[in-house]
Computed example of a mutant assay.
Amino acid sequence: MAKKKPFVVRLDPEMLKAVEKWAADEFRSTNGQLEYIINKALKDAGRLKKNGESDK
């Protein structure tokens, strides 16, 4: 499993409430839902590196 780096994120309370509801609807944690959303956005934008590519 890839190593994860923790960080703090500030969200509007209404936005957080919506994410928490969405996460519960899909049986994910709030953190897992945020990872899912970010991962999907990065893939859709073509900004996620493919496996095996270096960071250089």
Rank of each mutant, 00 (worst) to 15 (best):
E53F: 04
N39C: 07
K3E: 13
V9P: 09
R47L: 10
Q33M: 10
L42E: 13
K50F: 00
K56L: 13
S29M: 05
K49N: 05
K40N: 15
K49G: 03
G32L: 04
P6I: 04
G52L: 04
E53R: 05
F7E: 06
K43D: 15
K49H: 06
M1N: 12
D25N: 03
M1Y: 12
I37T: 10
K43M: 14
F7G: 10
T30Q: 02
N51S: 09
V8A: 14
E20D: 11
D55N: 14
I38Y: 02
L11P: 06
A41L: 12
D12I: 15
L11A: 09
D25I: 00
N51M: 04
Y36T: 05
N39F: 06
E35S: 02
V9D: 09
A23S: 02
P13V: 14
P13A: 15
F7V: 07
K17R: 15
E14G: 13
A41I: 03
P6V: 04
N31M: 06
K56C: 10
K5V: 10
A18F: 04
K21S: 02
R10G: 11
K56E: 10
E26Y: 00
V19Q: 00
K17E: 09
L34C: 06
K3D: 10
K50V: 01
R10S: 12
A2V: 08
K43Q: 13
I37G: 08
F7H: 14
R10T: 11
A18K: 12
P6M: 07
K17P: 05
D12G: 15
A45D: 12
K40V: 15
F27T: 04
A23I: 05
K5E: 11
E53G: 03
V19E: 01
F27S: 07
S54A: 08
F27I: 00
A23M: 03
A45F: 09
K50S: 05
A24N: 08
L16N: 07
V8S: 10
L48R: 12
S29F: 00
R47E: 14
S29E: 02
N39G: 11
M1T: 15
E14L: 11
P6Y: 05
L34K: 01
I38T: 08
K49E: 07
A41W: 07
R10N: 12
